[in-house]
Design a protein around this nucleic acid. Structure first.
Lengths: 119, 119
DNA sequence: TTCTCTTATATGTAATCTGCATCTATATTG
DNA sequence: CAATATAGATGCAGATTACATATAAGAGAA
């Protein structure tokens, strides 16, 4: 099937909004549940997406060196990021209904399919 | 927002199934209505997708030199293509409901939003 | 004839997104 | 000391798309 988009950006924006502030490694754990496409979101994709979001002003980060272990880069949404998430939601809502319509069409045209399988 | 996937492959497979047989230029016209993502599907993407589908055995083509004007490469689905479309439909149905759930969550968490706008 | 338009297929190149592998580094535990 | 968990990051290849461009056949106008 090739690779369907993972929609990493909107999911990350949403998680950051919900949590207020978080960092890559923590987000990676939660993404295993929150992902849109069954296939998990890869660590590499996550870290890169965070850097791109910051480069575009949608999130900002600072180092957290307080706890033990390696330092964490802690992110939070900017107001631009909030707007960007809202745009994503609009796009994804539209896509979702388009996909649903497509699925209905594709399932209705063609084989009898759900024609009350008897035995 | 970057570029959301156009899902060219499943749309082309579906149109070919519906029409029985067709060719690139004709499909390009119909894609303007059938596309899943508002943004139109580009001619270049369409022609390349058709060649890839053929390389993978999901469609077969033959030249139609009967009519006037340049020759047409006419495609039709193979049984493998039918199965491939069915797989796509399963994937897209799942994606559609995942997106819908995501949109609901993203819209509920956050601003009052739909809180009965009065005047 | 020559010019232009429509029809029809195809390629070159760059950008973006993803997957897999790999690397660095800090602290904890055995 | 060695292994493990935590944390962030890069290199490279493959997939998908966008934009531009190329090629070519026939129809109609000048």
């Amino acid at each position: 099937m090739g690779n369907v988009y993972r929609f990493v950006e909107p999911v990350v924006l949403f998680l950051l909004k919900k949590k207020g502030r978080s960092y890559g490694y923590q987000l990676a754990v939660e993404l295993k549940n929150a992902a849109l496409t069954d296939a998990e979101i890869e660590g590499a994709a996550l870290y890169r997406t965070l850097r791109v979001l910051e480069a575009n002003g949608h999130v900002i980060s600072e180092w957290d060196v307080a706890g033990s272990g390696p330092a964490r880069r802690v992110y939070r949404l900017t107001s631009s990021g909030e707007r960007h998430l809202a745009e994503w939601v609009t796009v994804l809502a539209h896509l979702s209904s388009s996909l649903a319509r497509f699925v209905r069409q594709a399932r209705s045209s063609g084989a009898p399919a759900l024609a009350a399988k008897r035995r």
